[in-house]
């Protein structure tokens, strides 16, 4: 089933000094359960695409439909995980995770139960009364993902969720996040400029060009492995990486 559809979406940033055409005529379709990665050079408009899908901005032209309905404001269908974890330092992990339901006035016993299950399942239950400052970078990132999942989104939007982590942590958190998303059967759209990350995580990779960005090419990733680490060890990984890398850099 199709979850998201973007048709000829363009966006121009207007400021007093200049007009910046960030993205131009981007069309994209995502089916339920897919894991899509968008890669492209820095500043090409990846974050812009996510902001548009989440309803934080309106496209200059083109249409975006989510679950068959046009997107015109931030809604209950998407969960946006930003570049940094954005945990509130004065709230416990538990309270951070429940932020979404609290904002949406859906904080009932069911929401609490669900958050509890997520925390237990993904190893943060013991730390529920801790403050973000007492957690490691990887744990914080996991907490941020659980906070996003507690919104019960149909579509997860991930904006370089691992960029703040060091390489070792990054590989293991990447594994965790992938496992969590797969076991929750969520549809996800990941934005990154790390090609290896995209190849190890995604079912499909969309390559954007330089600004104003258009969809340059789409790759189906077909590597037989269950985890991102497994994929990295697979023989086909290097080949896929090269293909995508060439497309990004020319």
């Amino acid at each position: 089933m199709e979850i998201l559809r973007m048709d000829n979406v363009s966006l121009t940033y207007e400021t007093v000094e200049s007009e910046t055409k960030a993205i131009e005529n981007i069309s994209l379709s995502i089916d339920e359960g897919e894991f899509i990665a968008i890669v492209g050079p820095s500043g090409c408009g990846k974050t812009t695409v996510l902001s548009l899908i989440s309803g934080l901005m309106k496209p200059s032209s083109g249409t975006i439909t989510l679950m068959g309905k046009p997107v015109d404001k931030p809604g209950a269908q998407t969960g946006y995980m930003l570049q940094r974890d954005m945990l509130f330092e004065w709230r416990t992990i538990e309270k951070n995770v429940l932020l979404g339901p609290e904002i949406r006035h859906t904080l009932d016993d069911e929401a609490k139960k669900e958050a509890e299950e997520l925390l237990k399942k993904y190893g943060l239950w013991e730390f529920r009364k801790h403050y973000p400052g007492q957690l490691s970078g990887g744990m914080r990132q996991r907490a941020a993902l659980i906070r996003t999942l507690a919104l019960r989104p149909k579509l997860l939007l991930l904006d370089e969720p691992f960029s703040a982590l060091d390489f070792q942590t990054r590989l293991s958190v990447c594994n965790d996040v992938h496992a969590i998303i797969k076991s929750e059967k969520k549809t996800a759209l990941l934005v990154t400029h790390d090609i290896a990350e995209a190849v190890s995580l995604a079912d499909r990779i969309v390559v954007l060009s330089n600004r104003p960005s258009v969809v340059k090419r789409t790759f189906e990733v077909d590597i037989d492995a269950d985890t991102p680490l497994g994929r990295r060890e697979n023989g086909k990984f290097g080949e896929m990486f090269d293909k995508v890398w060439k497309e990004v850099s020319v």
């Binding site: 934080l56 404001k73 931030p74 946006y80 930003l82 570049q83 932020l99 904002i103 949406r104």
Partner: peptide, 19 residues
């Protein structure tokens, strides 16, 4: 970024202020 996060959850200005 935190304001953006709350806005993406559909928070009102009053919620952004108080939360």
């Amino acid at each position: 970024g935190k304001i953006l996060l709350l806005r993406s959850m559909g928070a009102s200005k009053w919620q952004i202020l108080t939360k």
